[in-house]
Computed example of a mutant assay.
Amino acid sequence: MRFSRNATGTLFVGGAMALTLAALAYPSMLGVSTVSSSPSRVIAQTQWGPLTEGDRDFVVKVRAAGLWEYPVGQIGLQKGTTKGVIEASKHLVDGHAALDTTCRKIAPMLNITLPNIASPQQEGFVTTLKSDSGKKFDSDFANILRMTHGSIFNTVAKIRSTTKNSLVRALADQANDTVLDHITVMEKTGLVDFDQTIFQQTTPPKLPASDQTPPPPPAGQPQVVLTPPPNATSKPVDIDGIAGGNGGGGASPGPSPSPTVG
């Protein structure tokens, strides 16, 4: 399988990768008054260590990734035609539910506002896969997810090696394991076109920030929760243990339902 090289195909494939690689402008839309272009700039001193722009953006990225990859996993469970695609779909739902729990736990502790829906480009991936069927779905699913996870892998490693914040470090540890697992199960489908995937990974198009930015949640909107499957094997980080019992609040599911696939 090779990705479409026409304008529309390039927008979808490259667009999601650009979202994965680029620092999101999202936090500046939520009332952060001084935002520089430096990911190493410290924006807050916390009891768990300094929080940089890069740290904050990473937490938002992990949340945003789950908001589209979790529903895609649900779609894969319905539409996948091979055992490999079904298994990979299970890993998406399981892994991102656990990551989301960790994100929702640490975000209020670090005063980070999380999105409730993915960016327009991420939603475009969901729409594309909803419209696919049969072997085309299997192939697009494996290649799109392998590309996006391959792109974020280096970002996770950079945050893990540079952050001085213990909560962000714990999230990066979990994200590293989850992303590697998802890369592996996509490759095990036997459907990944490595030449084209790596090409898309390394040559993202330049796209407007508005297409790459999840909209801020309306005031008072219940937080969307990515509900773990009944047979979940992935677990969120023990934030209370890391925080010394001072991590109260932020992780309870609340009244909002988990995303569903229409």
Rank of each mutant, 00 (worst) to 15 (best):
T8I: 09
G9H: 15
G9C: 10
L11Q: 07
F12G: 10
G14R: 02
G14F: 10
G14C: 02
A16D: 11
L19D: 02
T20E: 15
L21K: 07
A22P: 00
A23P: 09
L24P: 00
Y26D: 00
Y26M: 12
S28Q: 13
S28G: 11
P39L: 12
S40M: 02
V42D: 06
V42T: 12
A44E: 11
W48M: 09
P50T: 04
L51W: 04
E53N: 13
R56Q: 08
F58P: 00
F58S: 03
K61N: 07
K61F: 06
V62K: 03
R63Y: 03
A64H: 15
A64P: 01
W68L: 11
V72S: 05
I75D: 04
G76H: 09
L77P: 07
T81V: 10
K83M: 05
V85H: 08
I86E: 09
I86G: 03
E87M: 05
K90R: 15
H91N: 08
D94I: 11
D94W: 14
D94S: 13
H96S: 07
A98M: 05
D100F: 10
T101P: 01
T102R: 04
C103S: 09
R104A: 04
I106M: 12
I106W: 10
A107W: 09
P115A: 12
N116L: 07
N116W: 01
I117L: 01
P120V: 14
P120Y: 11
Q121T: 13
Q122F: 11
G124D: 05
T128Y: 04
K130D: 04
S131R: 15
S133V: 07
G134Y: 07
K135T: 08
F137Q: 06
S139A: 14
F141K: 01
A142Y: 01
L145D: 12
T148V: 07
G150P: 13
T155L: 07
V156H: 06
A157P: 00
K158Y: 02
I159E: 03
S161A: 10
T163C: 06
T163G: 11
K164Q: 08
K164G: 03
K164N: 07
K164E: 03
S166N: 15
L167W: 09
V168H: 12
R169V: 05
L171A: 11
Q174D: 14
D177W: 04
H182Q: 14
H182E: 13
I183R: 14
T184R: 11
M186Y: 00
T189Q: 13
G190T: 05
L191F: 02
L191D: 06
D193M: 04
Q196W: 10
T197H: 09
Q200N: 15
Q201S: 06
T202E: 07
T203F: 07
P205A: 04
L207Q: 12
P208I: 09
S210T: 15
S210A: 14
D211M: 15
P216W: 12
G220M: 03
Q221H: 01
V224Y: 09
P228C: 12
N231I: 07
T233A: 06
S234M: 10
K235G: 04
K235N: 03
D238A: 01
N246R: 15
G247K: 08
G247M: 15
G250C: 05
G250D: 13
S256N: 03
S258A: 13
S258P: 06
P259Y: 10
G262C: 05
